[in-house]
Computed example of a mutant assay.
Amino acid sequence: MKTIVICSGGLDSVSLAHKVATERELVGLLSFDYGQRHRKELNFAAACAKRLGVQHQIIDIREIGRHLTGSSLTDDVAVPDGHYAEETMKTTVVPNRNAIMLAIAFGVAAAQKADAVAAAVHGGDHFIYPDCRPGFIAAFQKMQNHALEGYANVTLYAPYVHVSKADIVADGAKHRTPFAETWSCYKGGVRHCGRCGTCVERREAFHLAGVADPTDYADPDYWIAATGAFAAEEVK
């Protein structure tokens, strides 16, 4: 099945690209520049495409991104530290980001005669991001069936939507994903900060999966306190 992977350059989407390259026919990677402060992630997506020998397209939607205000990923708002499932992480929501990207990706897939679009949304995102939940995935597929009726039949492949980040790490290791060549940190510095939600989640996922974490973190041990504090809140 000819599949285009939406690839940010992060651990999840790069792992998905390697999975698709092994199990399906990977025809290309599609990335989006929406004005994110961690734009350096796109370099990792490009490296992934080169490694897998497929086309890499970057869609520039920065003008759209300028209007999706209020997020710490696009505005002059501090990226919060802590566990990904804390209420403070809602500042990292970019309104309708996945819906916009998927709609474009489906159009590209239809134009290029691809059979599927793959997205690396996962179970750990459900608390914060409504457009990463199973209900959204099912509804989006239904909408696209109507949008492309009689023209193309494109399916949304989201194999991680019901699993954890640790499961993705395990699956990525199975498909020999070079984790050191992925970028997660929302702060977009020289090194992974180790403190923002994506860094904490990344570090925790490797620990739970029992896979060595090759990531260079500025604060490699912060995740222990962050996950402990979150667990304490869950017990209350």
Rank of each mutant, 00 (worst) to 15 (best):
D75M: 03
D33H: 11
G194M: 05
H56D: 14
D81L: 00
A116N: 10
I64S: 08
L73P: 13
P130Q: 15
E233D: 15
A47V: 07
L29Q: 04
K113V: 09
V94K: 10
A158E: 05
L29F: 06
A17P: 02
Y157W: 07
L73K: 02
G172A: 07
I137L: 12
A21Q: 07
C185M: 14
H146C: 00
S184G: 06
G28V: 06
A158W: 06
Y222A: 12
T177P: 02
V161G: 01
C185H: 12
A78W: 00
E86F: 06
Q141M: 08
D125F: 09
H67Y: 03
I128S: 12
C193S: 05
A85Q: 13
N98G: 07
A99T: 15
G194P: 04
V93Q: 09
V94I: 15
F140I: 11
I100D: 03
A49K: 02
G35C: 02
V117F: 01
G194Y: 03
G10E: 14
Y129V: 14
V27Y: 02
L29P: 01
R97W: 00
C7S: 13
I61C: 03
N96R: 09
V94A: 05
Y129W: 14
Q36Y: 07
P220S: 02
S164Y: 09
P95T: 05
A17W: 02
T92D: 07
V27Q: 11
L156V: 03
L42H: 11
I6Q: 15
A114E: 03
Y34A: 01
A103K: 08
D171E: 14
K187C: 00
K174F: 01
Q141C: 12
A119C: 12
I64K: 01
F32V: 09
N98K: 01
I58K: 01
